[in-house]
């Protein structure tokens, strides 16, 4: 028997899908911002070699980078639940994404930082610049250029990975799609539309990011 497509029901539910997409974007942006802040601290801890902090940072990075995202989300939702800490699906997914983002970005930041040749510091110093001025005008702008694309990729990854929210009943785009399709049995239609929406969101993010990079980075690197 041939599958009959019925798109009407999908369009009727568009507001709910859009709302789901908004939650997806919301959780990814937040996971990115928090991930960046923590990654900066972890990167500093790793580079300072101060024993306890360095150890924590290393363990964090290793676990985040070498275990599946699915496992992180389950740990945050069911794992912590077993210890009486009950996170909402949103917070569980957010925590897992922050955990992973911070792990990956730590290495990105550390690499970006270490890729600036030491001669840039001596040159700045010899011109009478203070350390703060050296970082503000010479080191960080160059570092930002080098970490910009890896950061964009991490953001796109977060958007796509937040779809694992479906597993803990979060009402982001995938979770919403799941709920709507099981109520209407229009499985294929709903998932096709959701996939198209993911595609559009990530393409828009990449487009916006490249526009911004052209404004920010006029020089070559």
């Amino acid at each position: 028997m041939e599958y009959q497509f019925h798109w009407n029901i999908v369009f009727q539910k568009m507001p709910e899908l859009l709302n789901g997409a908004f939650v997806t974007l919301h959780v990814s942006v937040l996971a990115m911002l928090l991930g960046i802040v923590i990654a900066i601290l972890l990167a500093i801890a790793k580079m300072n070699n101060s024993k306890p902090f360095c150890y924590v940072a290393t363990v964090w990075v290793e676990i985040a980078r070498n275990t599946p995202a699915l496992f992180q989300i389950y740990m945050a939702y069911f794992g912590l639940g077993a210890f009486g800490i009950h996170l909402s699906p949103y917070v569980a997914v957010l925590s897992a994404l922050v955990f992973i983002n911070a792990g990956y970005l730590t290495e990105t930041f550390r690499g970006g930082f270490q890729s600036i040749p030491s001669t840039q510091y001596s040159a700045s110093k010899s011109l009478g610049m203070s350390s703060i001025q050296t970082y503000r005008y010479v080191i960080l702008p160059q570092m930002l250029r080098r970490i910009y694309h890896p950061m964009t990729n991490q953001f796109v990854w977060s958007i796509l990975m937040s779809s694992l929210g479906i597993l803990v009943g979060m009402s982001e785009l995938s979770g919403t799609t799941q709920r709507l399709q099981s109520a209407s049995f229009r499985t294929l239609e709903f998932f096709i539309v959701a996939a198209v929406m993911y595609f559009i969101i990530t393409k828009l993010v990449l487009f916006g990011s490249s526009l911004l990079s052209r404004r920010l980075f006029k020089g070559e690197i």
Binding site: P117, Q120, S122, Q142, G219
Partner: peptide, 11 residues
Amino acid sequence: FQQFNAFPHMT
């Protein structure tokens, strides 16, 4: 210095 160390992100 001996090494080139212009700031590459500036004109």
